[in-house]
Design a protein around this nucleic acid. Structure first.
Lengths: 126, 126
DNA sequence: ATCCTAAAACAGGATGTCCTGATACGACAG
DNA sequence: CTGTCGTATCAGGACATCCTGTTTTAGGAT
């Protein structure tokens, strides 16, 4: 169980990355999904295309907030947009997203009570 | 622009919840997964049980950090622990977690470049 | 040209989340 | 009983992230 500092951290181009570093990429994927507004947007889009203003009125939050989160989702390729004159119509870019959200929702609902009161990630919301 | 609140929210005893509020629970689920250290721990445990000290030496991060994240994962029922005298041996609590992580990893690897440079969630890490 | 509407981008401020180092605890050996 | 090991917890500080209100950009209509 030698920590062996020599083994891991050289000018290590491809080898021996710590598991934590390897996880950074995927963690970021989950972080995109970890915001309630973004998640709500994605859920709506799973039911069909929507323009920004439609999202705003359905979600009932400020337009700047919706546009900001859409920019994030667009950049990270979770959604795509078509421009129809000045209207922007958004849709889900990767169909596999549906599976991720579906499985997650089932698991999450079972753990709901515990998730709600975990003081290590955000304040309680019950 | 009538959002037609009647259409979606039928047996809604208390109030018509906005989609954003409904998403809070699941967003929290993803937030647990959105930390690199926690994600790395879960991946290791998917390969078999581990004690805290084993995790510490494999991950090569401070023990307090590992214990803190384990507390979060334990509370949220992602992992379970057995005590063997003073040793704590951890394992995955919900086998469905494997599916979530597997699908996510595939999708995330395709979007990796974009995730890495999204300035709206954390600093770049490339 | 001028005025709207739809959407995007920006700035400042308020929290949320994570990290580290120190400390508390319980089981066991001597 | 006392020291040590393995683990958990806590406090404080450093950032990351999100929000709101405002401003900018651009297409279309009058």
């Amino acid at each position: 169980m030698t920590p062996a500092p020599a083994s891991g951290a050289k000018t290590d181009t491809t080898t021996t990355q710590s598991p934590v570093e390897t996880a950074v990429a995927d963690a970021r994927f989950f972080r995109v999904l970890s915001d309630p507004t973004r998640l709500a947007i994605l859920r709506l889009l799973l039911d069909g295309e929507r323009s920004v203003s439609e999202l705003v009125s359905i979600l009932n939050v400020p337009q700047s907030r919706v546009s900001n989160h859409l920019a994030c989702l667009r950049w990270c390729r979770f959604v795509e947009v078509d421009r129809v004159s000045r209207r922007g119509v958004y849709r889900i870019a990767d169909p596999r997203l549906r599976d991720v959200l579906a499985v997650a929702q089932i698991v999450a609902s079972d753990q709901c009570d515990h998730l709600s009161s975990c003081s290590r990630i955000g304040p309680d919301w019950i």
